[in-house]
Amino acid sequence: MAKSYPALVLFTALLSCGAASAQSTTVDDDGFKQPLRELKFNPGLNQREFERSTLSALEVHDPLESWNRRVYHFNYRFDQWVFLPVVDGYRYVTPGFVQKGVTNFFSNLGDVPNLVNSALQLKGERAMNTTARLLFNTTLGVAGLWDPATLMGLPKQREDFGQTLGFYGSPAGPYLMLPILGPSNLRDTTGLVVDYGINQQINYLNVSETSSDHPEIIVLRGIDQRATTSFRYGQLNSPFEYEKLRFFYTESRKLQIAE
């Protein structure tokens, strides 16, 4: 013990000197102690730059992007200068109950391709549901002017030939922006053509044949469809609306095919 005592005294002295030195030393504020105070923000990094940095997550196969963007801008202006003013005029001069009847009538016609595509996808319950809707809405609903089927617990089930192709594994193909009709892809555009052919061949309630002599029926159907579609170009309030719309459409179609 006597031999270790000088060593213990020396160790204690060193600790005391170290503590005194630490208390007397001033640490320079080099920015690492308060990094946020030294952080410089670039005022140019606004919402636009933030969105640009996330666009990689919105990638969609779009080899015709240059053409699609031109069509997108055409649709934007057509919607702003022609389509929506016509829709507003239609709403202004047409009583609400008449508008509802027109919507119900064309919705009833739309259940014909819904039924065909439900059957093609072997969705028996949906096919029976849509068959019942057609029966009740065409008879009790007076050719579809009313929609008693929904009140009876038979909601509308939308199925199109694009979904049918996707159901059987057909790839979406390149993204397409269709004039006036809006977002689509190669598979769904093919589906639109087939669904149109189904309506023409079945000629439900003789509407397709009558429309050939009275194109105003087709015009009215287009106005009604636009009036009942809530989307408005520019509503995303983003310079990257094209990319967002493309992504939302692609993902929503995947969900519709999977359900």
Rank of each mutant, 00 (worst) to 15 (best):
Y5C: 07
L14A: 15
S16W: 08
A20G: 11
A20D: 11
A22S: 13
A22R: 11
T26K: 13
D30E: 13
K33A: 13
Q34N: 15
P35F: 08
P35W: 12
E38C: 06
G44Y: 09
S56L: 14
E59M: 05
L64H: 08
V71T: 15
Y72E: 01
P85L: 10
V86A: 14
V86K: 02
V86P: 00
R91V: 08
T94V: 12
P95N: 08
P95E: 07
P95T: 12
T103I: 03
F105D: 00
F106R: 04
F106C: 07
N108W: 01
L109K: 03
V112M: 04
N114Y: 05
N114P: 04
A119E: 01
A119W: 05
L122M: 15
K123L: 07
R126Y: 07
M128Q: 11
T130N: 14
L135Q: 05
N137Q: 04
A143H: 03
M152L: 15
G153A: 10
P155C: 09
F161W: 12
G162L: 06
L165R: 01
S170Y: 06
S170K: 03
G173R: 03
P174M: 09
Y175F: 15
L176P: 02
G182C: 10
N185F: 01
D188E: 11
T189S: 15
T190L: 13
V194P: 07
G197K: 09
Q200K: 13
Q200A: 15
N203F: 06
N203P: 01
N203C: 06
Y204C: 01
L205V: 04
L205I: 09
D213R: 13
H214M: 11
P215A: 04
I218G: 04
A227S: 14
T228L: 07
T229H: 10
S230W: 01
Y233R: 02
Q235G: 03
L236W: 02
L236P: 02
N237G: 05
Y242H: 05
Y242G: 01
K244M: 15
F248V: 13
F248E: 03
E251G: 00
S252L: 12
R253N: 07
A258K: 00
